[in-house]
Amino acid sequence: MDTPAKTPKDVSAGDARLRASVGPHISSGESVEHIMWTVSAALLPAAALSVYYFGVHSLLVMAVSIGSAVAFEALAQRMAGQKVAVSDGSGFLTGLLLAMNLPAGVPLYLPVVGSAVAIIITKQLFGGLGFNIFNPALIGRAFLLASWPRYMTTWPVPHDSLSLASVDATTAATPLAILKEEGYARLLEHFASRYDMYTQMILGHRGGALGEVSAIALLFGAAYLLYKGYITWHIPVSFIFTVGALTWIFGGDPVLAVFSGGLILGAFFMATDYVTAPMLKKGQVAFGVGCGALTVLIRLKGGYPEGVCYAILLMNCFTPLLDRAFRPSKFGAAGAKVKV
């Protein structure tokens, strides 16, 4: 054949088979796409329960959040001249996680603004999937909380049964807000007994954001992810253990601390984000302990009743430092001082 010979440049640019990615090069049959959709699926039980408790409006919030996240991702990728890859599910997952962090009764433009901040500013401006420094969904939530604090802290009361009506007009403070404003004794008065309080926390019959109402549904999804090996125990266990232990040391109720607020959602589904958490196990444990300590600090001393979102964002700032600090020594260079 009389085709012109390819220069090496053509080969590297054109033939994907000849391009090597960054190591490790172990073929496992897993892909980013597969993981993203599995994590989204693992959130389904909690999402379904939130529809049960908060009615159809909850479903609307999720749909708008996911839809706008995917649309913004496609738009931003097109504008940046990248391949539009919304089918990898990362935009979908960000939208779903953002919705999970919103109260059920928010006006529907809030998830749209939140998705724009999460996808365009926090993710695509840094180069897209894999390059962002902060967890996009959490930045979206923090931005909304700073901009519309009243909408973001108005929590509708969960229904007792599935209802097609819009969100109840009645609202209730979250358990953590009651704890902060009125103290533990007053919080207990809302329940028949301490045991009753724990069961309601775990089953999810309480005020809160969409995704944080039911600990058991979240744990169900998280267990599946752990079983599949998509997340490891290091971050969630060190995070949750630190919150429980520190709360107990400072005289709080550790069981309440672990099952209230967004801790389960944050520890299993957001702190474990591959991109924004440290890569190495030791760094991950340090990350989890840091998240836990900051959460307790903000819950007990801070201005907000819940600190999980800010704690994870603050530790995201430290991720590059943690990766640096726990960098392993080079093979064969043990004992030698490796200059970093």
Binding site: A142, L294, G303, Y310, L313, L314
Partner: peptide
């Protein structure tokens, strides 16, 4: 974005 995260410290003391 870091400033947004540092909002978490507001009201601490």
């Amino acid at each position: 974005l870091i400033a947004l995260a540092f909002l978490g410290f507001s009201g601490l003391i």
